[in-house]
Write a protein that binds this DNA or RNA. Structure first.
Lengths: 339, 339
DNA sequence: CCGTAGTGTTGGACCGTTCCAATAGCGTGA
DNA sequence: TCACGCTATTGGAACGGTCCAACACTACGG
């Protein structure tokens, strides 16, 4: 309780018998400090349990070497992978990070953003499709920011990194066609931009494989309930599809349940492939084939671009697409009867 | 790029035609500032886009009004609920929060802890069963901290909040017995303390229901693979159990797969109940009955205790147990044949 | 023997706040 | 009219670092 004052750089200096300036230099790892002094200083710091005060450091120096991570949804499992990647890369480049989480409550979300600015972060990396209005204003005013998202919001000075949804959807279709499927249906994710791009990729690939007449889109959603409904619709048509590309992993879980309820075995009677590569799909008991977004890679890339901008003044590219990856597991196989 | 200097309190003062001290007072909401001055100051601050500098504020005042949240695993879905609860409560009490995440890499984890201390957080709330050695040392030295975990680590000055695993396990058994089951097996989580308490609760409840001779423990783990193995073991005995209490939700998913593979229908042939109340269990396609830890409540309580300690000097209770809750879904029902 | 370059070290200004003691202005009762 | 108390306001000293210009000391070439 009685938290006695933290030792300061001056306490260390007194103990080591040098000036505070030399302590500062030594702790920064300057090469102009003699071996003798350095050792004495480090020893003194250790004995006193000295810990630098981040506030004082940030005040005194022009740069905070801190970047803010703005997250939309802590519940989404890909968030964790993303954060891990950003943090690792930031650490490697000697930046520290502050995490901040959006919220349904606009006031709370704004408070979080304020916090980022009050801590004088040098730049920000955001994950998610949405960006608070005030954030847009700050970014437009020249605050360095990179958004990792499928959308590219029309905000001046904002760079974006996105997964190539169109290409990913095509990979899903290519995979199914490669297994021998022809009647391939698609359960969509609704009318948002992401869902539309995935649908466009599906349709383009089908046409490319000369399967334009087999194109069947069934309205669903990114939730498991939506996938369930979309799948029931898909399976009500005759002849039934032998494979279904579902808009997301979460929706695919619902879709699998629907197929199982109708007595279909997966993958013997019906192949199913999802999208996102969440760790939900990796559950051994599900074994869902999916198109994985390289979320960690996107985090790393975002950090590299931001750091390059801050350190060398390189302007980050306005918009970058990264390639998704096919992960074939046990929900896709050859169709029941060839053809 | 050309980030022109941030406006400071002095810029605001000049513009409003008052002294910097008065600006400081006004922005803190002091009642000793005249209405006229206050309005002029707020207007000037707004026009300049003034934003307080958190570093300077923390340097100048004795207290940072910031508490650190130390997380072990961002991937665990309960983490998000916990963070939400802590943040909401902290905000209500006018504390800000900094998130910090542990890591498998000890050096990285230590760096995160350092960061917390460098930002001079006033206290810390940790979620998880493990605490870095250095953290224990800092806490023992008097740093206010509360851990939310099933363990109570033997660290001086550390308060803990835990879910009552023993009571929770008993609730699971009571539920099954109430449905008419008598041959109730348990898939354990191994030899750690949490698993042992859940097992102890299971055995105590069985004895209380005069079912001591039906006690069957099958070694598993907290993973889905572990649950799968434990369940296979449980189902290899004759007569088969009619219900199984599995140590965790994640393990229960594996256990369900094992039962299904053996051709058993859930819940018609076999009832299964998990533990934790993760949102995994809430998936409509699983509908897993479970014992939910009131994780949000634990986060709120931890924050209240810590704030009370910091504000009023109340010492938090060394150790608090909170009651879990039964969530009955669709994996539990009456046994095939009564008795 | 002296100017010079390089190395190691130092004091002090400064960063943007908070906090405190001091003060100016003003009505008020003796 | 003046000491008094009250309110609104002020300047300046912290806070704990970084950074810079200046300095002492040594080594060295001319």
């Amino acid at each position: 309780m009685e938290a006695r004052r933290h030792p300061t750089i001056r306490d260390v200096a007194t103990r080591a018998g040098v000036s505070k300036s030399l302590v500062s230099l030594a702790l920064q790892g300057s090469s102009r400090v003699s071996e003798t002094s350095r050792e004495a200083i480090l020893a003194a710091a250790d004995e006193l349990g000295y810990r630098p005060n981040a506030s004082a450091r940030n005040l005194g120096s022009a740069r905070s070497r801190t970047i803010g991570i703005f997250l939309l949804d802590l519940h989404n499992p890909i968030t964790a992978d993303f954060v891990d990647a950003v943090r690792a890369e930031a650490r490697a480049r000697d930046y520290r990070t502050i995490l901040v989480v959006g919220s349904d409550d606009a006031a709370a979300e704004y408070a979080e953003l304020e916090k980022l600015l009050e801590f004088r972060v040098e730049g920000m990396i955001a994950l998610g499709h949405r960006l608070p209005v005030r954030a847009r204003r700050v970014i437009s005013a020249g605050f360095p920011a990179i958004i990792v998202s499928s959308e590219h919001p029309r905000v001046p000075h904002l760079a974006s990194i996105a997964n190539d949804d169109v290409a990913g959807a095509q990979m899903a279709v290519d995979h199914l066609v490669g297994l021998g499927h022809r009647r391939i249906a698609h359960v969509t994710g609704g009318s948002n931009a992401v869902a539309q791009r995935r649908q466009a990729g599906y349709e383009a690939a089908m046409r490319r494989h000369r399967l334009a007449r087999q194109i069947r889109c069934h309205v669903g959603a990114f939730s498991d309930v939506g996938g369930h409904a979309g799948m029931l619709d898909a399976l009500s048509r005759r002849p039934r599809p032998t494979a279904v590309f579902v808009c997301s992993d979460f929706a695919a879980v619902g879709a699998m349940a629907a197929a199982t309820q109708l007595g279909l075995r997966i993958p013997e009677d019906l192949s199913i492939i999802g999208y996102d590569g969440t760790n939900l799909s990796a559950l051994p008991t599900l074994g869902l084939s999916t198109i994985a977004q390289p979320i960690a890679g996107m985090g790393t890339l975002a950090t590299q671009l931001l750091a390059a901008h801050l350190d060398d003044g390189l302007p980050p590219p306005r918009s970058t697409l990264v390639e998704p990856q096919l992960v074939a597991r046990s929900t896709t196989s050859a169709p029941p009867r060839p053809g």
